[in-house]
Write a protein that binds this DNA or RNA. Sequence first.
DNA 1: CGAGATCGTTTGTAGCACAAACGATTGGTC
DNA 2: GACCAATCGTTTGTGCTACAAACGATCTCG
Lengths: 146, 146
Amino acid sequence: MRFDKPPPEPLASALGFLVSWNGQRMAHLFATALEPLGLRPPHFGVMTLIDADPGLTQQELVGRSMIDASSMVAVLDELEQRGIAERRPYPDDRRKHALHLTRRGKAALAKAREAAISVAIEAFEPLDAAEQEKLRLLLRKLAGVG
Amino acid sequence: MRFDKPPPEPLASALGFLVSWNGQRMAHLFATALEPLGLRPPHFGVMTLIDADPGLTQQELVGRSMIDASSMVAVLDELEQRGIAERRPYPDDRRKHALHLTRRGKAALAKAREAAISVAIEAFEPLDAAEQEKLRLLLRKLAGVG
DNA sequence: CGAGATCGTTTGTAGCACAAACGATTGGTC
DNA sequence: GACCAATCGTTTGTGCTACAAACGATCTCG
């Protein structure tokens, strides 16, 4: 996808298209910002979830991340292989794994957060603080968040 | 991706995530609405462009649609095979093709437009007219449109 | 005419969603 | 205590799309 130019005019008037275009652009910027760290958005999301709630099972991660179970296996394999996360045995149920971040994983997450914040600041620069807040409220309402 | 539930709370507060989530949801809803017609979003986009400006070359379509040249070949192959569009010889340059919609193509586009409009109305139902307009303005500004 | 650019095309790599099936393990039931 | 169904993580396969590189045909320009 090319995001160097704003969308052409007939499309830029359609609200649905605008929502979709900005969304894909944002996802693309985010992925680009993460790339130098060797991470893709799914990795960042999973790392964030594990950090917020250590010991989560893969099933719980799937439920919270919108990543399907098949892909989750691959993401965790990569995180584990790189020493960022580890699957520990889950007490009382040998089918499950308890996911934890390693020390290296927490450091990597901190770096990734910096990149995410800095790209967000840059991306939303066209809007002032009040406009950003208004946008947030509208999108929350559109998304159906209380 | 699962869009049946609103995004989980730690994420729903991040503006970048909200933009991205709503965008992907919108794209997904749109694709689903188009599916019964045997069309995918790229087909609809290309059909719309050809209809608005008959005789466009593939290069011009690529420039206006954010679809890359490789994929454009496949999209046009499918549209042509289904009798929706046709590649006619381009006057003065035998490398180029002039794209046109067939009568059947125009009918298919009309149907697709109905589906698109109806899904848009449904998707933006949580927002009243004034809110939708405010959202449109904010997103245009964010996208860098005039 | 010849060199270089352009247009459409083909091929290959990669990420991701989705669906189906599998072994290991668990829990409930008779 | 044995059996059956459900669950968890996993593997495999299909489909769509972005991206990059290369190609033949054709055009343009010197």
